[in-house]
């Protein structure tokens, strides 16, 4: 799988293929969609089965569900303030979807849907639209004051306003590019070192000895990628909360 034709082919892992045979092909249902569906099912299962016992002393699954809930709850209320509770379901859903996408993608033969800019940009665009709509709904026309700081001299408006608008528009781009780039970089690295293992392993007698080195690197990388998977979901959630803070408080 790693080294067909003795070359390093690190990018073919991101190609989309159809899932579910001819039915999937007929409706253009890709393996990316299948993994999204799997992630959604796993998330719902963890949360539903986790909270079902409602034990005072939580079991393993229940404490996992409670940990996710409390972590996100602290994050949202810490960033947005106590008004942030209304947006908790939104941030929670985003965080879980991104986290499980990243983590499921690390399993063998799995596909990482967060490694496609189309997916991350769609998520970031949803965040952008929601924060803008929240700001418009809460503050109406005052929202546009966001693009011109109070107390600045009026003759600077032609410079400040375009810069602020572009800065605001750059938010979904930086949000999506960060997640996408991190996931792609991690998976390319994993693939490159995995290919080294196979290529070096075929080099006669000394090959397998040398091949242990990239194998060790890959073991370390998997641990690192697990950290990155969590961290990027966290960054996505916290930036969403910061944008929501700006939308609610408007300054």
């Amino acid at each position: 799988m790693a080294a067909e034709g003795k070359t390093i082919d690190a990018l073919s892992q991101f190609e989309l293929t159809h899932a579910f045979g001819p039915i999937g092909a007929a409706v253009n249902f890709t393996q990316s969609n299948a993994h999204m569906l799997a992630a959604a099912v796993v998330i719902v299962a963890v949360m539903a089965m986790g909270i079902a016992p409602r034990a005072v002393v939580p079991g393993r699954l229940q404490s996992l569900a409670e940990m996710f809930y409390e972590f996100l709850e602290n994050l949202v209320t810490g960033q947005v303030g106590h008004e942030g509770k209304r947006y908790f379901p939104f941030v929670f859903t985003l965080f879980m979807f991104v986290l499980f996408g990243n983590v499921i993608g690390l399993l063998p033969f799995a596909f990482t849907y967060t490694s496609h800019i189309a997916v991350t940009f769609a998520l970031a665009a949803i965040v952008f639209l929601v924060t803008t709509i929240v700001a418009l709904a809460l503050h109406g026309k005052k929202f546009f004051g966001y693009f011109f700081p109070e107390g600045a001299p009026l003759w600077l408006a032609p410079i400040i306003v375009p810069v602020e608008v572009v800065s605001y528009l750059s938010r979904p781009i930086s949000l999506s590019v960060r997640l996408f780039a991190n996931m792609v970089a991690g998976h390319v690295l994993l693939k490159v070192f995995a290919t080294f293992v196979v290529l070096l392993g075929g080099l006669g007698a000394i090959g397998p000895v040398v091949a242990v080195l990239p194998l060790g690197v890959n073991v370390l990388l998997i641990g690192f990628e697990l950290l990155v998977a969590f961290l990027q979901a966290y960054v996505f959630a916290i930036l969403t909360s910061i944008y929501l803070h700006d939308a609610v408080h408007l300054h």
Binding site: V166, S167, L169, S170, S174, V177, A181
Partner: peptide, 16 residues
């Protein structure tokens, strides 16, 4: 992060 911010602002500006 700073790098991503600069690049994405450039993309947003140039795109607009």
């Amino acid at each position: 992060r700073a790098g991503t911010e600069v690049v994405s602002a450039l993309i947003a500006g140039a795109g607009l």
